[in-house]
């Protein structure tokens, strides 16, 4: 069987295992998360970072050989089984509205209410946490809501903005630049650095959005 992954170096102290095969794949992601769990806390390993159908492992190259990490990643991937992480389920209240909603719906040829219905009707899974503190990459977006990112990113998308971009959904944990479309707003806290686990959501968790209001 041909290998179904690409392994690359990210400096002397990190390796990236990329198992993507075209579009995002839930089964591969579940296998990656199982592999991530098996590597966390191992000797010399500093960070295990799941991405979208990829996994980065950062280690101290003076404490552990890259070959050893390579072996653990490759063997681990070949034998990883997609066991569903015992993830939590989160219901997140959203007030729909904001600067993009009307144009976003029009661009897709949908009514605003249909965009809201499809966004709040889907069941999402947290594929990974990253980029920003506590930011969830959510899979499970209704394909009808898949649209290219804004040609010009906004300089400051506010904390709490409920956003979609490409085939993904997310929520802004802090105010930051983003090219995704804003569909609404939530008060849900995604990140608190004073907690032991600073990110509220974790990879493997399930998220549902609840319509708490619509601003027109």
């Amino acid at each position: 069987m041909a290998d179904d992954f690409i392994l690359s170096e990210a400096g002397a102290g990190a390796l990236l295992l990329d198992v993507a095969a075209g579009a995002f794949d839930e089964d591969r992601q579940a296998r990656l998360l199982a592999l991530a769990d098996s590597l966390s806390g191992a000797d010399g390993i500093e960070d295990v970072v799941p991405g979208m159908n990829n996994l980065m492992v950062a280690f101290d190259p003076l404490a552990v050989e890259a070959g050893e990490i390579t072996r653990r990643l490759v063997d681990g991937w070949r034998t990883a089984v997609a066991t569903a992480r015992a993830g939590c389920e989160h219901r997140i209240d959203v007030v729909y509205g904001g600067p993009d909603l009307t144009d976003f719906a029009a661009g897709l040829g949908l009514a605003v209410d249909e965009v809201i219905g499809r966004h709040a009707g889907a069941v999402y899974r947290v594929a990974a946490i990253g980029a920003m503190p506590g930011f969830p990459y959510l899979s499970g977006l209704d394909p009808a809501l898949s649209a290219p990112r804004r040609a010009v990113p906004r300089a400051g998308v506010p904390k709490g903005a409920v956003i979609v971009g490409g085939g993904q959904a997310g929520i802004m944990p802090i105010t930051a630049p983003s090219g995704w479309h804003i569909l609404g707003h939530t008060d849900f806290t995604l990140f608190d650095p004073h907690r032991v686990r600073p990110a509220t959501l974790a990879a493997g968790d399930v998220v549902r959005f609840v319509v708490a209001g619509v601003e027109r």
Binding site: A10, G11, G13, L16, D47, N54, L55, A58, A131
Partner: peptide, 9 residues
Amino acid sequence: MSHGIVPGT
């Protein structure tokens, strides 16, 4: 697709 990065990338 989005992936982990380290300082130096």
